[in-house]
Design a protein around this nucleic acid. Structure first.
Lengths: 346, 346
DNA sequence: GATCCGAATGTGCACGTTCACATCCACTGT
DNA sequence: ACAGTGGATGTGAACGTGCACATTCGGATC
């Protein structure tokens, strides 16, 4: 009943062996599910482990096998819903596979900051890396520092030096834009993400393709920074021009800021202006008006990233990953274009 | 110019020693900034490291020093803004101190799920633990599994077996409620968080204290789950009663869902009902109406948690941490109570 | 000039685990 | 009866690092 006296040192495999009256190697075999071990021996060993409160020492195991059972996550903007959800999914999936996750945040996106984060992760002897900071720069730095472990990007980057999930952001963005076009909008502005983000670029491309297909005139996209505050700022600038009837924002936060600015300027959404977002964050369906957006399954993305990465780590043959296609969710922020000029029709 | 031929094994301290023509111990001393090493020797060693692209093997170091330089984070609801921000701050701060962070997500909050997550972290030989899952249960399981490393909670739990930051949620909630009372509201409902969350409990206590101080009648609080969807559901139920003029929601997401339900029911916020949230998530200032809420500095909370924990890990004397007091941010979702009955005054 | 001192460096072992190889034993086939 | 087989277990080395302890050496002290 009384806890075993600990002499300041955690019990090792040899302590267990002594108690179970076997060799340390037998204990190791029990730990690693070696096939040829007699059930009753195994039982005895397990018993001894229980008694001693034995926990395997990962450092020792890693040292000898040179497998750390750890994957790294390099994340930017991890405080926002999308990345945070994917990170959580990655952790869950990794845990299921017996892997640990080590996250490094990209506080600033300067090459030095990126290199620092990567260096930090490499010190940890990770076996693979998931990159949730899909900025072009990050991949350049990664390529330059030849980290020597496989890595996977959550978005297709076009590069050949790593694995990539293919979430078809282009199609998602195109559908969003086509939705607006289908409602009769012909003057559509795109509030894009930062230019060096792969996602931002893909969404803009989808937008441009749709505009092009419909042979509409192109309004120069506004380059934002993903934040609601920027959305508000961009909206304030836009209302001065009033030469558009719809805006496609590259994410929901910016869309929400945008709608705020329109509201402040006395513009009705969707009466005067339609707005579409991207991501479908949990509040999107509750804001006023409810936000038409493009749903992304961040959880599934995280899971697949881990599957892909571990597959590569274990040297298995390349598995095929089907595209994840985001889904348009139509809500209250979009409506057929009003007979113009309609601003006073409110 | 050509990369050094690697024989499939990473260079060790001994390889560096050979190249620099010193003993492996000298290399070790350079690595650990030992004082008595001749500058020119150090230079030679550093040179050799550079040439070989040497990286210290953390597993070996951990094995011999039994210090893993890793802290664990046990997080629930890590996809939402508050926890995600704190986690990011924890990572940044830990990195500054040369520590790695290992996160385990609490997918489900059953005792088994909790124990599983803790077990997973313990396998990693963490030196300390930050708990961002301030549910009573979690601390019970932690106490029961006697993990043997110090841990810190982001909220004061009242327990004595660990460190705790004291974010004064009670005061924050009280101020929010007093704000409503100051506006003349006398029938205030509290939409609370899950009962077993320490934060939820503290916020409810602040609410109750304020109600009590003002000698107002008490509406039974509604127990929610933090989500905007629940907020909407609760709001739909509430509009049937119409026996209140203000609601204090335990977080912003629920408040936003709540406002959605009120809007759908034709109730004006803040004309008919005032709403206050908690946390000040980034979209709070952009929703319609802009949300009065209580600001929490999640980043600072994360930083302090790491400072506190590492201080404890290194066995220093207990440092004093001053309270973090959340700040009320008044926006457009609260207004003086209307002369009742006012529902038709819209 | 013998002695002592501290700075600079080297030697061997220990950390806890797995791997390669060896050993023991019961059973099989001839 | 004997070699052969394979299951169950044991033995010793190795992984890469830091620690305790030894050694060397130049200069200060008397």
């Amino acid at each position: 009943m009384s806890p075993p006296q600990d002499r300041g040192r955690a019990p090792s495999i040899r302590d267990v062996a002594r108690l179970a009256e076997v060799s340390h190697q037998t204990v190791s075999r029990v730990l690693n599910d070696h096939p040829s071990i007699r059930p009753e021996t195994r039982e005895r060993v397990l018993q001894a482990m229980e008694t001693l409160q034995y926990r395997p020492n990962r450092a020792a195991r890693t040292l000898v096998t040179s497998r750390s059972n750890t994957i790294g996550v390099l994340a930017a903007l991890s405080t926002t819903y999308g990345p945070a959800t994917s990170i959580a999914a990655i952790e869950d999936a990794a845990r299921e596979h017996g892997y640990h996750v080590n996250t490094a945040n990209l506080a600033d996106t300067s090459p030095a900051g990126i290199a620092d984060a990567i260096e930090h992760l490499m010190l940890q002897a990770i076996e693979g890396l998931v990159v949730i900071a899909p900025q072009v720069r990050v991949f350049e730095v990664l390529a330059a520092s030849s980290i020597g472990v496989p890595f996977v990007s959550l978005q297709s980057t076009g590069r050949r030096d790593h694995l990539a999930l293919s979430v078809d952001q282009v199609t998602g963005a195109r559908r969003a834009t086509q939705h607006l076009i289908g409602l009769g909008h012909r003057e559509i502005v795109h509030l894009a993400g930062p230019q060096d983000w792969i996602e931002a670029e893909a969404r803009m491309r989808g937008f441009l393709e749709a505009i092009d297909d419909a042979e509409l005139g192109l309004h120069p996209p506004i380059l934002g920074d993903w934040t609601a505050d920027f959305g508000y700022y961009a909206g304030s600038e836009l209302v001065r021009r009033r030469d558009f009837t719809a805006v496609f924002a590259a994410n929901d936060e910016m869309a929400i800021g945008l709608m705020h600015a329109f509201r402040d300027a006395g513009l009705d959404v969707p009466g005067d202006v339609s707005v579409v977002g991207f991501d479908d964050i949990p509040v999107a369906k509750h804001v006023a008006p409810t936000l038409t957006t493009v749903y992304q399954d961040f959880h599934e993305i995280g899971r697949r990233a881990v599957a892909l990465l571990l597959n590569q780590v274990h040297g298995a043959e390349r598995i095929e990953v089907e595209d994840i296609v985001p889904r348009l969710v139509v809500r209250g922020s979009t409506a057929p274009v009003a007979v113009r000029p309609a601003p006073s029709a409110r």
